[in-house]
């Protein structure tokens, strides 16, 4: 089995009010060096790594469901089976 880690984040042009609220709380904790916080989504997907279409499949899942290309981008990485 292969573990695929998918990270979905807002494009730079998109306002992230949740990240802003978290940043304000962090400043409230006294960490005033923190310049910016952006929130995103993280997915762990376990797949049969022997499938020849695994990379295509992951990209299709990201394009069609996990990320909205209007406002988000994504990246993913494969973790080898022995590490899972």
């Amino acid at each position: 089995m292969t573990l695929v880690k998918v990270y979905v984040t807002y494009k730079k042009s998109i306002l992230d009010p949740q990240g802003e609220a978290v940043k304000k709380a962090v400043h409230g904790m006294g960490f005033n060096d923190v310049q910016d916080i952006r929130m995103g989504k993280y997915f762990e997907i376990t797949v049969d790594g022997d499938s020849p279409t695994v990379k295509e499949d992951i990209e299709k899942i990201c394009d069609d469901l996990l990320a909205n290309p209007n406002m988000e981008t994504y990246r993913y990485e494969f973790v080898q089976s022995e590490e899972v």
Partner: peptide
Amino acid sequence: LTEIGLLPGALIKNNHN
């Protein structure tokens, strides 16, 4: 309707949260 591509753009969180 925006998610299925029948209309352009997207609806995101209100800017004032």
